[in-house]
Design a protein around this nucleic acid. Sequence first.
DNA 1: GTGGATGCAAACCATTTGCACGCCA
DNA 2: TGGCGTGCAAATGGTTTGCATCCAC
Lengths: 145, 145
Amino acid sequence: MTENLLENLLRKNGLKVTKGRKEVLRLMEKRKDEPMKAEQVYDLVPREICSSLSTVYRILNQLSQKGLLKSTLYQNGIMYYQYNSGEHRHYIVCSKCGKVAALENCPMDAFDNYIRKDTGFDITGHVFELTGLCPDCKEKLKSGK
Amino acid sequence: MTENLLENLLRKNGLKVTKGRKEVLRLMEKRKDEPMKAEQVYDLVPREICSSLSTVYRILNQLSQKGLLKSTLYQNGIMYYQYNSGEHRHYIVCSKCGKVAALENCPMDAFDNYIRKDTGFDITGHVFELTGLCPDCKEKLKSGK
DNA sequence: GTGGATGCAAACCATTTGCACGCCA
DNA sequence: TGGCGTGCAAATGGTTTGCATCCAC
């Protein structure tokens, strides 16, 4: 994503353009397929651009509030952030090795109307977190761990 | 659930029978439809049976490990516990008033095989958390908040 | 120049843990 | 009676916040 696009995206959302915000946004867009926690982001940002973990948290939260990022609290108690490309995706995480795979479709879509009818609720969001064993770990387990 | 069933259930799972564990298990079974957080459980247990919040946490975690309870970390950062009746259910929570409704079916079931084929993962578990507006809040919003 | 952005350290808060005491098997 | 369960207080750890300083506009 070009320098200009980044800056416009920030300005359009009422955020002042700073080195930190630009860097975090660029980084999240580059790794749009990988949900990341604050510490990972912090480790990827050069210290001279942003030297404080709390600032990374502040930036991630601002970008999330503006809808530029999506954030999800995983069952391990850690918040993961991801560039919001507008696509709606879910991931499955291997409970042994941590490998991540993306789902092609969201199982929810087909059930949206059904649930609306079933419960009378309007669905405004959902979290869908899968755990499982990836093919590699399955293989290793079979051959005696 | 009778006194005896409770005690057997604990013993069968290798847990010593204590007043605290019995009381928590009884309580969770009685309210099997309502996911509860540790503090709620603590408030429901008579002080003379269990006087410490940390003990409630310990009991809830033990019962969860043995599979007698299910535990889920919600997006608000709080762990909710629920009696594990073997049924598999999901809930939708109104983001305005907090009302909870149960889903009749689990959207996941239909997708289990599909995801296995899609990603090669064996699914060992999933968290499915919905947020939405209940009919009452929808109504209130329509008529000017 | 000035209000928002950042760095640092301290606060937060749900949950966990260490240790001394007490109770179930 | 011996080991596990409990109570209390202190620790933990990811995240947030207060405040002084700094930078974008």
